[in-house]
């Protein structure tokens, strides 16, 4: 059982969360080309080790989180809100 330390709710079972996807994708603007969107949507690295990924605390506070997780061991290094303003708030409240 992966346990995720939600910045708002504390450490919870992963069954409370839904997996999102690669948190490092910079989605192109809506008017960007088909090629740019293809890159953003379909091409993913298959990382062995730590990767940044989004998780939604769907059965909790409903916040989207960036989780730094090892694909080998499930070890989690960090959990932050996705929203940059909220990241700052959480950081300041530490």
């Amino acid at each position: 059982m992966i346990r995720i330390n939600c910045p708002y709710c504390g450490e919870r079972d992963h069954s409370e969360f839904s997996y999102g996807g690669d948190a490092t994708i910079n989605y192109p603007s809506l008017d960007a080309s088909e090629k740019e969107w293809t890159e953003a949507i379909f091409f993913r690295k298959n990382i062995k080790g730590f990767q940044f990924e989004t998780w939604h605390h769907s059965n909790g506070c409903r916040m989207w989180l960036v989780v730094e997780r090892s694909t080998v061991t499930h070890e989690i290094k960090s959990v932050k809100p996705c929203h940059p303003d909220l990241q700052k708030v959480v950081e300041n409240n530490k």
């Binding site: 999102g20 989004t54 409903r62």
Partner: peptide
């Protein structure tokens, strides 16, 4: 319904902050 709700939250929290 649930999928759309999560989707809107995702867009607002991750893409169009």
């Amino acid at each position: 319904a649930a999928k759309v709700m999560s989707w809107l939250e995702e867009l607002l929290q991750t893409r169009w902050t």
